[in-house]
Amino acid sequence: MPNSTTVTEFLLTRFSDVWEYRVLHAMLFLLMYLATLMGNFLIVTVTTLNQSLHTPMYFFLRNLSVIDMCYISVTVPKACFIFLLDNRAISMVGCAAQVFLVVFFALVEMLVLTIMACDRYVAICQPLHYTVIMNTRVCVQMTLASVLSGLAYSGFHTGNTIRLPYCQSNVVHQFFCDVPSLLRLSCSEIFSNEILVLISTVLIGGGCFVYITVSYSLIFSTVLKFPTRGEQRKAFSTCVPHILVVTLFVISASAVYMKPTSTSPTIQDMINSVFYSIVPPFFNPIIYSLRNKQLKEGVKKVMRRMFYSGKL
């Protein structure tokens, strides 16, 4: 091993070093961040206060909104600081925390999206058994199982990555710390780490994606048998946006986590990271609120209640 100083902190990467572009990127990230927080907080508020929305579908949607707010908060605020300030440094502890939280929220989001596909399958394909199968206890158990699985998974991969010696460059070619970027900086053998990341991504990410795809295939085959076009449109409007978000999430994450670490990092890797760490949390409230009549009615009720209470 060549003589080198052990890395104690990392330097995150900007999309550009030109000041005008840095300001533009920070503004875009900040606007998306604020819109994500507002949209998801509105969904959480409406689904909590409106008794008619206390159903399994909105229970999982509320959970997804909470996850999205936390998920985007792990990366975007720090990214805005490194875009605007000259200091791009992040401590080893801060980097480890970012890796843990990014992996945790990404996995839990994927599991919740899978559960939501299961919920829609039962609601559309087995409506008579819906209340029995998707009861409150089952919903809570599935949510807890997702959270515990996320903690175990992220803890394992974070520990497996951070324990490696880092004595080469300390420049992380990413606007936040993630496993593939850190593996490229290690000065030890990382083949076993790469295999573990690849296998876990294929098994968990691929498994969830296949389950969701099969669920919606069965849903669509059932929807096409509905007697009226109105019922078909309602079912499709609920399911198609869900599929688009999941597909974007899986493809962009796979492009980053399944890419060999031996290849040189590119700006495309950073763009792909935006599509799995920022875009899904940003689009989820737009898709589920604009395409959902009950949710829009709930938002109007909450707004009216706030308006009248403010006048009083």
Rank of each mutant, 00 (worst) to 15 (best):
V66F: 04
V108A: 01
R120H: 05
C177T: 04
L113N: 07
A89D: 08
F156P: 03
L164W: 02
S65A: 10
V66I: 14
A89R: 10
V179T: 09
M69F: 03
Q168T: 15
A145R: 05
I82Q: 04
N63V: 12
L111V: 06
V76C: 04
R88N: 14
A106L: 13
F105G: 07
V99S: 06
E109Q: 14
A106M: 13
M69P: 02
V112Q: 15
S91L: 05
A106V: 14
V99H: 00
S192T: 15
C167R: 08
V108H: 03
D178I: 13
L151K: 05
L84F: 02
E189N: 14
L148Y: 12
L128C: 12
D178G: 12
F105M: 08
V138C: 14
M92D: 07
S186F: 00
I115G: 15
C125H: 06
V179F: 00
D86F: 11
V93A: 14
M142H: 11
H129N: 15
M134N: 10
I124Q: 05
A152T: 14
S91V: 12
D68C: 12
R88W: 15
V103Y: 01
I133F: 06
N63D: 13
V147D: 05
F100G: 03
T136G: 15
P77K: 01
R184I: 04
I162A: 07
F156E: 11
P180E: 00
L111C: 09
L185A: 00
R137F: 09
R62Y: 03
S91M: 03
R184H: 03
S154L: 08
N135Q: 05
P77M: 02
S169Y: 00
C167K: 10
V93W: 13
V102A: 10
I72P: 04
K78R: 11
M110T: 13
S154Y: 01
T136Y: 14
G159E: 05
Y71W: 10
Q126L: 10
S65M: 02
R88K: 13
N135I: 06
C167P: 03
D119I: 01
V103W: 00
S73H: 04
P127I: 02
D68H: 08
L101D: 07
Y71F: 11
N87P: 07
Y130F: 09
Q126N: 13
I72M: 04
H157W: 08
D119A: 07
S65I: 02
C187E: 00
F104A: 06
N160L: 14
S65N: 03
V93L: 13
F104N: 05
